[in-house]
Simulated scan of single mutants.
Amino acid sequence: MPFDHPLPPLPTQPEGVAWPTKAWPEGTPAHGTDTARLNSLLERAFADPAPDTMGETHAFLAVQGGKVVAERYWRDFTPGTTFPSWSEAKSITQALVGILVRDGRINIHAPADVPEWQSADDPRREITLDMLLRMSSGLKFVEDYVPGSVSDVIEMLFGGGQEDVAAYAANQPLEHEPDTFWSYSSGTSNIVARCAARTLGMAGEDFRDFMFRELFSPIGMRSPLPKFDKAGTFIGSSFCYCTARDFARFGLLYLRDGVWDGTRILPEGWADYARTPTPAVPEIETLGYGAHWWLGMAGPGSFSCNGYEGQYTVLVPEKDLILVRHGKSPLEAKEEVQAWIADVADCF
């Protein structure tokens, strides 16, 4: 795949460090880490009662050089607790598409396989999986989590669209010409998830089996709990619960360029595709966007899975670092939590 932007190289697994397929190796942060500042930041985040500026932090995990180097949980949360993904699931959906690309089953630059768009005069026929993955489809979708306001995401997940989330999203009209306008949309992720399922001729339990066989089990993720709607579509925008250590495994797969213990899980270039900036992200967004991954939270070159209420898996290639944070933070605390993660990364 061609890319227009130079990207920092992705680190390889250090010699002699076991892959965490069964258990995570444990170690200490790299020499030069500001452990005093790191501990101070953790004390602030895990204060009880939780700080109003950040909300509750339920779990924190740092992996450096392929080893767990810091880990902490709040109150009754433990390493065995499964945490909500919210939109971290979008990055998992991107990985599932990557597996189909690897096997030559799908072309992200061809028109997406969406039954609702098959009319000869439907301009939505121009929309590709690439446009959907980069949030540049041009489809109308109001991504607002404030109860009582006009919100397509609430209507799709909890209202009239919940039994067939992909159909709800696919039936939205175009607001912009495809590939000319960026707008974050959980609806597009569910269209992508259904496209993947249609490619395989699978839904429900069969698709769940595919997820475990091709993605989760090979990298040692045992905790995932993906949710499906009544139509059998993986709700790839929002719902795949995992432990913090399993979210870190998923992050390590991308930090290692889609290769796990000598086996290529994701096609060559797929992790780079995830972290290549999408044009036309509006200036009101504090972060950049790639392909179902966010960019720049922990400095230039970092990329991340971000979820509602403060769910994050953040990769910092230049430091061979993964930071996982789960919690329950109000929307108005989002930038404060992201700044805290950037400060934590700066300690390493």
Rank of each mutant, 00 (worst) to 15 (best):
I322E: 00
A193N: 03
V17M: 00
E143V: 04
A45V: 06
E285I: 10
W86K: 07
S119R: 15
P178G: 01
E163W: 11
Q94F: 13
G262S: 05
K334T: 12
E71C: 04
W340P: 04
R208T: 10
G187S: 04
L287S: 13
A248V: 00
L200A: 05
D164E: 00
T21C: 09
F158D: 15
F158Q: 14
P6S: 12
L100E: 09
A18M: 10
D52Q: 14
D4I: 12
A23F: 05
G251V: 06
P282C: 01
L315R: 09
I235V: 13
P282S: 02
F207P: 00
E15T: 15
D261T: 07
W117T: 04
V259E: 11
R264P: 08
E15C: 12
A333C: 10
G160H: 12
D52Y: 10
A280I: 11
L38T: 10
W24D: 02
A166V: 02
E332K: 13
P29A: 08
R72Y: 05
G251Q: 02
G66I: 01
T93H: 06
A197Q: 15
P11W: 08
Y241M: 15
G290K: 00
T12K: 14
H292L: 15
P79T: 06
M1S: 14
G288Q: 01
N39Q: 13
